[in-house]
Design a protein around this nucleic acid. Structure first.
Lengths: 154, 154
DNA sequence: GTGTCTAGCTGAACCATATTCGGTATTGTA
DNA sequence: TACAATACCGAATATGGTTCAGCTAGACAC
């Protein structure tokens, strides 16, 4: 874990909300010059705290109306690492986690229509190592993509 | 749903991967001038396709070691919309969806430690309207935050 | 105490890029 | 044909990213 002070945490919060803020603007908010903010941000990138700069796209606006969480049970001889590369070939699958409990793998997926979700499920079930899937369809999303709050140093 | 042509989709893909690309660089990749790309991007922002510019932070690097999905069952007289504002008060909760099936609400949460997750679960259980929770702890994440592929126009 | 090193900051200068603008080609429509 | 709307281009301008030299404070050795 990377050591972060109060100012680093404030910068990360601001950039998670709006990464296009100018360094001068961030500096005004956290009490530093633009150059100092620049320095800190570059350091955070180098240390891997900032992984990427991205846009957040509205899924519905680009035709992805359906969101679902797909719980996958694997056969005993298969691991999440075995099947993940295959799941990565399905562009509908946005996330892939190995999980503890009743479930072995948890996927988050988005499709244009319920029919497309059905087709995706069939493809997933056919992946070698997959034993069973249980899907939870999202009816509405209250919030998503909220900023992560950095943990205070101990 | 917003109508997007092939170039819009290409621009959205590039920006989801790396939103700091210059308009000139994007233009070179999609076959347009910088000014034309600028035009299209502003239009995508205005139409709500691009919701925000954000940084992607490595949760582990900022001390968030634990990720969990929390399935919430509500009492019959409660709705997801009722409880969501309270969940929004918990900064550990990153996503909140209303779901169909066995479950009423699905949360994604991140905490520093398993103990913190335990405390969060207690707080969630105490929210009025919540009947039961079932948690799935993530052991490892294969991938996350993949770009959404815009649906082709019909 | 003095000297030295380092980390982190500042303001200024410079340069890349975002943004604006005027003009042109294309398409659809009356 | 004329007209309007759209999407594009290159050039000019404005903004902000990036670099740099120098300053300060703190840690450390002597």
């Amino acid at each position: 874990m990377v050591q972060l002070d109060t100012i680093d945490r404030a910068i990360l919060l601001e950039l998670q909300k709006e990464s296009r803020l100018s360094y001068a603007e961030i500096g005004a908010r956290v009490g530093l010059s633009a150059a100092a903010v620049h320095d800190r941000v570059k350091k955070l990138e180098r240390k891997g705290v900032i992984e990427a700069y991205r846009i957040q796209v509205n899924p519905k606006a680009i035709g992805l109306q359906v969101t679902a969480f797909i719980a996958v049970r694997l056969q005993n001889d298969a691991t999440c690492a075995d099947v993940a590369p295959t799941f990565a070939d399905f562009p509908e699958v946005e996330e892939c986690h190995s999980a503890a409990g009743d479930i072995d793998v948890l996927l988050k997926a988005r499709t244009a229509t319920p029919e497309d979700l059905e087709k995706l499920l069939y493809r997933i079930k056919r992946v070698p190592g997959v034993s069973r899937t249980t899907s939870t369809v999202v009816l509405s999303t209250q919030f998503e993509a909220r900023p992560l709050i950095p943990v205070e140093a101990e």
